[in-house]
Nucleic acid binder design. Structure first.
Lengths: 218, 218, 218, 218
DNA sequence: AATGAATGAGAATTCATTCAT
DNA sequence: TATGAATGAATTCTCATTCAT
């Protein structure tokens, strides 16, 4: 594979595919157009990728690899969970602005057409963060950093849900418009404020203990 | 329009469309196949809907109308926010099981291909819950039911994000697989446990005040 | 046939067809649209006309009947040929303005699509004027009103050719534009001048004898 | 464009289109059939021509180019007008027999369906002959070769009308049948006689002066 | 008899994929 | 090996015609 293509050319082809898929969606993107834009012949493309699907998956892989490397930085940190949550939120904002198309690729597979790959892809893509977040939350609960009456897997899931929605809300058209409907166009670009509010949201979600409420309500 | 088609036939056609669109996505669904499955000729379909797009939008509308009527019940309730949150969570679970395809239709428009409609649809679809949730949260903050150092629009947004992800996680393939990756197949069907955990998550997210943490951390 | 339809309704339906066929051409005219515009159901239309073709032919017949009745007036005249030629030219101009659509219907059958009917239609439509013009010219030649070294059939043919082109040049889009290209937009509406010039053209075409030229050239 | 298609193949495709369009008319001709007859796939056809319309226009252009090149020979001649008229008449006869389909293509655009292109096409197609004929007639009038009490534009128009009808009468079904109705099947193939008669018709139309008639009539 | 909803064959067009050069 | 022209199956959409009411 790629015997003759330089790494750079490989990357260029994939990036062209990513741009096109992100822009039009898998089905409406045109392989011939992608090849032309990438400055290669369809023949080459089909030499390295069996079919459109395979090529899409390769584009997807590249997108997720980049997104993952960003995640890695966060994961290897040794901050406490709440500090880390804030950092992740800000990292997500940054990534959303810098790698819009990668996130759109990610979003693309969450829609119905790609049903077939769901199990395989979900496993590949989500395992790492699922494991990391779950362990983290479990540890934090043990340490008393956060409440301990929770299921770490579910809270990891909720946590990632919130982040995933944030990503999409910055990068994908529908989600972005929805963001505006909820908060007005102004907030969509006020990263600082959104970050501080979401941090609050997550912080208290993790920290508060139900009993406290009742206590205070007295 | 629809002079001869009974309401039932109308509904059957739309439901067939919904099933097909939810299963295959807009682009891979085939109008001729839908017509055949609905037991009508393509001609009829095109008599009532200008083109595939228009038909898809009609299917989408029907889906959202049903989903909205479920939401309405929650909205008209007079419970306090946290009680209501729990009810909504459980309603979402129920809806996800009963109206999987409607939710898939909703999910369908969040994907890239439908870029064109994003602004219009987001406005139409999200306005109601945005308004209701925001008002609710603002009131609750004023009443001291929840913390008051928050932006109601953003917290309404975060709240709906969590619910939206829950819906998709029950109904849409990729999200469902991801749910399993995070929590294992068992939890996906343990509605009771998931509901109680998510309620906790939301409850504390809304109630806790940051200062308390620091206090306890001492 | 037409047992129930009044003459007026019959006429209205045909006129609607004529308008539509003249506007769009046989193939692009839509039977359902015609029925709707005529205020009847397609069913009625198909009760009286086997198919689109038959209906078109009926519309054509009506058009030609009207055009023919105009011709009749000229034919029954007892003027000398040159006087008559001028009258016909002016009649053609008048008809072209008043019955544009009928002429367009006529033009419609001269185009390739209607190959099938050519022999039948030509016989039906052209016989009368062919006979009349030929006899006329033959008589005029015998009487010395016009040159006598001509074939009356061919000169009748040339004569009608000139008139046919005049009709089309006033009524049919392409011919009209061509008229403008040749003479400028101004002349297209200067009926008086065109008539006098065309009369000259025809008059001399019929009257002059070749030998005279050579004579004068000396 | 046409990188791989040889000139010959290009020509073959266009000729196939011309044959089909000439035979059936634009609307009844079928692109898939044309492709098959031309021994290519529809895909190729659509690679070189955006749509059916564009392809038709290309076929039309080819037809007119050929017809025009024939006209060119006549135009560059330096004969006196009457000599030239006869040559043109004979050229038209020859062209009509050799390039029947090209003339049918020309005829095709004079029918109602192609309304849209009328202005553009008329300008493109008729300008040259309009200019040439008009100038010619004006010069001839000045030189005393023909009568001088005429409008050169109108006489050029009448002249071309006569030629156009001759073309169609040899090439297009309806006109051909009409020709027979007027003159009998025998004359349609007696080119010599028709040419001599038409030459007479044109010659006298151009040469005679109205006053002469009255003179002779005395 | 009249209606117009329903039918479905047919036609234009697209584009993933192949393969001769 | 690379190219990109060629393929043709697949899909959307139209509209003449039918026929149940």
């Amino acid at each position: 594979m790629f015997e003759k293509l330089t790494e750079e050319k490989k990357a260029e082809i994939l990036e062209t595919g990513i741009a096109e898929f992100a822009e039009k969606g898998v089905d409406r993107a045109n392989i011939n157009v992608i090849a032309k834009k990438a400055g290669i012949s369809v023949g080459v493309l089909y030499k390295y990728y069996t079919d459109k699907e395979t090529f899409f998956l390769a584009c997807l892989k590249r997108s997720l690899d980049v997104l993952n490397s960003v995640l890695q930085e966060q994961i290897t940190s040794s901050d406490k969970i709440l500090v880390r949550a804030e950092k992740i939120v800000r990292a997500v904002q940054k990534t959303s602005r810098e790698h819009t198309n990668y996130i759109r690729m990610y979003n693309e597979i969450t829609s119905g057409g790609n049903r077939k790959y769901a199990p395989l892809l979900a496993e590949k893509i989500e395992s790492l963060s699922a494991t990391v977040y779950t362990r983290f939350i479990a540890d934090a609960a043990k340490n008393g950093d956060i409440r301990d009456d929770i299921d770490p897997r579910l809270f990891a899931f909720f946590f990632d849900n919130v982040l995933m929605m944030l990503q999409f809300s910055y990068s994908c058209d529908y989600y972005r418009e929805r963001f505006k409907v909820y908060c007005g166009a102004g907030l969509v670009d006020d990263d600082e404020f959104v970050a501080s509010q979401l941090t609050k949201f997550l912080e208290s979600a993790f920290t508060f203990k139900g009993s406290d409420v009742k206590h205070r309500e007295k």
